[in-house]
Amino acid sequence: MKPAPFGYAKARSLDEAIGLLGQQPDGVKLLAGGQSLIATLNMRLSEPRLLVDINGLHELSGIRLDNDHLVIGAMTRQVEIERSADIARHAPLLAKALPHIAHPAIRNRGTIGGSIAFADPAAELPACLTALSAEIEIAGPSGKRTVRADDFFKGLFETALGPQDVLTAIRIPTALADHRCGFDEFARRLGDYAIVGLAATARANGAGLKDVRLAYFGVGATPVRASRAEVALAAGDLDKAVASLSGDIDPQDDVQENAAVKQHLAGVLLRRVAKQMTEARS
């Protein structure tokens, strides 16, 4: 299929982009990497009247250190994150997750901001940011604001972004010496959206863990924190953590697998990811 007709505007500044978003409130979409959006356009699942292309806004791109935070511009391509030494050092969870995202040609074009704003519940990056206690920087008609990842993902493909908002950057606390992270997912084929996946962070606590954050994807409308399991894992009780997942997540049947299978796989992932975190050496 070919997309329905739409207009195109290439924003020359962030303010211009925000202004363009305001012109046709219902029919405007921001074009970032386009790796999800253009597929939906091609299938006429989405028929905006105007696309506002922010690929020319170089100020939205790049990875930099800002004291104890890593700041990733929204338009930073996924491939840059995958290859970045700063990411590997300061946010190793992202380095672990990136190779699971689609395929090289997609990662060359896809952006971190696009993935976060699109908020596919089976995508890796929203869960990673949730696990990393990231903050999402947003610019809108009334200025700039910051939203915690925990508060950003509101529902199925629904976020804290308003109709005239532009996601500009992601702020991630840099990993300290006791930082631990783990990532794994079950996908039928490399690069597929996962049946279920888990992004996790914690701090080393002797041989154990504390401040555990478990963010599942593919099990709900948004990344889902497994808060009971987090507590159990911090208490050193992996079996209890796995058992308590039934109260933490409520996956639904989909065309690949049913809820019971997803629930089981979530437990398998927890054991594997916990092992990654407890076996890691600083």
Binding site: E257, V261, H264
Partner: peptide, 14 residues
């Protein structure tokens, strides 16, 4: 033979 079918055959998932 999906993971789910194999898990059910193993009795891991009902």
């Amino acid at each position: 033979f999906t993971p789910g079918k194999i898990l059910r055959a193993l009795g891991r998932v009902s």
